[in-house]
Nucleic acid binder design. Sequence first.
DNA 1: CAGACTCCCGGAAACGTTTACAGCTATCGG
DNA 2: CCGATAGCTGTAAACGTTTCCGGGAGTCTG
Lengths: 365, 365
Amino acid sequence: MGRKRLQEPADGRPTVHTVAARAGVSIASASRVLNGVGGSPETIRKVREAAAEVGYVPNAIARSLQSQRTGLIALAVEDIGNPVYVEMMRAIEAVVASSGRQLLVHATGGRIDNETALLRRLANRYVDGMIVSPIRITDDHLTALVDSPVPVVVVGQLGADAGVDNVRTDSRQGVALAVDHLVATGRRRIGFVNGPLDTVPGVARDAGFRAALAGHGIALDEELVEVGDFQYAAGRAATERLLARTDPDALVCANDLIAVGALHALLAAGRRVPQDVAVVGMDDTELARMMFPQLSSVSLGSAERGRRAAELLLQRMADATLPPRREQVPPSLTVRASSAAPLPAPRSAAPGPPTTHPSSEGVTA
Amino acid sequence: MGRKRLQEPADGRPTVHTVAARAGVSIASASRVLNGVGGSPETIRKVREAAAEVGYVPNAIARSLQSQRTGLIALAVEDIGNPVYVEMMRAIEAVVASSGRQLLVHATGGRIDNETALLRRLANRYVDGMIVSPIRITDDHLTALVDSPVPVVVVGQLGADAGVDNVRTDSRQGVALAVDHLVATGRRRIGFVNGPLDTVPGVARDAGFRAALAGHGIALDEELVEVGDFQYAAGRAATERLLARTDPDALVCANDLIAVGALHALLAAGRRVPQDVAVVGMDDTELARMMFPQLSSVSLGSAERGRRAAELLLQRMADATLPPRREQVPPSLTVRASSAAPLPAPRSAAPGPPTTHPSSEGVTA
DNA sequence: CAGACTCCCGGAAACGTTTACAGCTATCGG
DNA sequence: CCGATAGCTGTAAACGTTTCCGGGAGTCTG
């Protein structure tokens, strides 16, 4: 029997050639048996035996090169420490798993170059598709998205002309829901703790806050606005700065992490929540329910956005010729103890539970 | 010019053949230029031009098949919603990134089959190495670990004979630190809210708790022990059950998520923390500092374990012949407001900050 | 000016798998 | 008893890249 190539690679790991040689059959037969397609009983026995003896395990890279698919899907988010991305990830994971694929997550740490590098690297066929949720978007970035070799779906705001599938929400309206609720329950000195203004969500929420106040005919006192990043520590520090110079009766926070920081700062400063200051967070993550008192929060439908993004991606992977699609998930407010109505003359419905009973499940607006 | 193969694959994406043909050079030259090694100025120009014109992007899978490496490292954890894994991930990420590789995370959801499947799939060369932190370990699992085609490092308890690199802590001693502290500050009816007893950390912490109490000559009242899973909701529910039947003056919790649940249940039941009940968490995550009052917590050095695991992995990837190594990171206790000494006659040092000043940074034991 | 050396290039093999194709044997139907 | 057919097998090509090797052209040295 003339062997045309090395049976055992330097690596030492067996290949299909090793198995075939040992079983005394061709690599084609070996491959067929190993894939469970075809083969006579005798061949099957021999190949199985040989494979077991040498401890054969197929090389997925080689298989992928041949089949042009890896069965892997990637999700890139900036901060995996933010529970909102965890919820999104879980929703995506469910869809992805049900399609028989596996999900891999990468945290970009908000470093834009990192995210672009990831796109260029992973998307070069290591994964069959990708979902990214950027908070900053540059042109370079957008280019990388558009001519990615594999399908990409974006979760977040993106221009209609971007030519990329995307699922977004309306966080301006989300902020408006919070403001409306606070105004309706008698609050007037409403503060706002936002994330960075060089991020897409940051500017949207800022605009939403200003518009909502104006809509109620309330003049905005700039002292009531603070900016940090989207983290707990920044939210706490920003709130401390804000409290040092003025006296709000409510705080709208640009996400739940910030809201938790604000709550901490308020309680540490001796303010009662919600009696003295009402707090409303955003994203409606598990964290909001974990606090005491539980935090009211505006849901931006992250799980739903994740689910839809995953579905869009699977569809596009099945048919690359689909036109770019945009979907939108509406925000909704869940009122909990941190903003239950304490001030005189709450005109709206939603009487809310007594603030001393924080285990209430909240009232969705 | 005789073209021997299809220049444009059905896929439509350009390959190095496309570029070479367009530039009028061989694929060898094209490849060299694209990798920045060799080539005359003229050739370089032509190839670069051709590549840009057709929008060439290299196929990483094919490259990996040739080079036998992907530059990717995977981390598998059970619950990415638990901040302890986020911290571990950040530490790992830092090491991995500094080696020029990229980290991918996979959440197994604690489903053991899922984790094994991941091992068998990813480890088949999609990644160059893998760090896993399982909470349940079966024989099947262990087998998959041991004869994985790529290096694997385990974060967590593993028998010395397992033959796999691993980094672990001593969570029995961790629980002991918490109990010692509580006893030293005058607590006697110390409760314990644990995770499932079919997990490795679950049994270790249970054993640690019993041993520590015995060490202080305190008889264990079984009514003071509750079990749930390692999540917030379970911690809260377990604490509610516990409070319904008995009356602890302190609670040790098997992780921070449980501790947060316990804190919520205590406050909702009208107990003062720490005056009526002291609370100590475990893992010392960011969450502990976010609470009000801030939670005392036993650090199990997750960041450090992550860092070391990553280093072990990189070493093994460089030299597969290394003998299996085991490293251990000691636990340490950080005392914060939730267990500051309120009961009479605290014999130990660590006077602790007044409980009304929760922004203290804590005292490390 | 001859020989040695450098540089660049193209052909071809290799990475490990799947699969189209053709040939062979054995069985079946007429 | 012979031709068709079904099932199995092996050869070889293909996936897209990198890289070894030999040859040719140009440059430098003596």
